[in-house]
Computed example of a mutant assay.
Amino acid sequence: MKQGLIVYLNGTSSSGKTSISKELQKQKEVPFHHLSIDEFLGGYDDFIDKKFPDIEPTREVEDLGQILFGPIASVYFATIKLFSELGLNVIVDTVIDNDKWFNDCHDLLFDYPMLFVGVLCSKEELTRREQLRGDRMIGLASAQFDKVYSFHEYDLEVNTEQLNPAECADRILSFINSGQDCSAYKKLSKREITVS
Rank of each mutant, 00 (worst) to 15 (best):
T127C: 00
I37A: 14
L9P: 07
L86G: 07
S174M: 11
E85A: 05
D181M: 05
L126S: 00
L64M: 13
V195I: 03
I72A: 07
Q162I: 12
N89W: 06
M1G: 10
K100P: 01
L156T: 07
E62L: 14
D135C: 02
K123Q: 08
P53I: 06
P53W: 11
V195A: 01
D155M: 11
F175G: 03
I176L: 05
D49H: 15
G134C: 11
I72Q: 10
K123C: 01
S122Y: 05
G179V: 02
T160E: 02
N103A: 09
E130N: 02
S122M: 03
S122F: 04
L188Q: 15
Q25F: 03
F116M: 10
I72G: 11
L126P: 00
A184K: 05
A184L: 04
K2Q: 09
G179Q: 03
A169T: 03
H33R: 08
P113V: 14
Y185G: 01
T127Q: 09
V92C: 04
E167M: 04
S150F: 04
I96D: 12
R128A: 06
D170T: 12
T18Q: 09
E56P: 02
D99P: 14
F77G: 00
K22P: 09
I172M: 06
F102L: 12
D170G: 05
Q66T: 08
Y44I: 11
R171I: 03
E56H: 15
D155W: 14
K22N: 13
I193C: 01
A78E: 15
Q180G: 01
S74F: 09
E130H: 00
F83A: 15
E130I: 00
P31Y: 04
E23N: 02
K147V: 12
R171D: 08
M137Y: 10
G65T: 08
F52N: 07
L5I: 08
D146P: 06
Q144I: 04
D97V: 05
M137Q: 10
C182M: 15
L64R: 14
D99H: 15
D170H: 07
S196D: 13
D49V: 14
K186F: 05
I55N: 10
I6C: 06
T127S: 03
E60R: 15
L108Y: 12
I138M: 05
S122D: 14
G16L: 02
Y185C: 00
Q144C: 06
Y76W: 04
E192K: 10
R128S: 03
I172F: 11
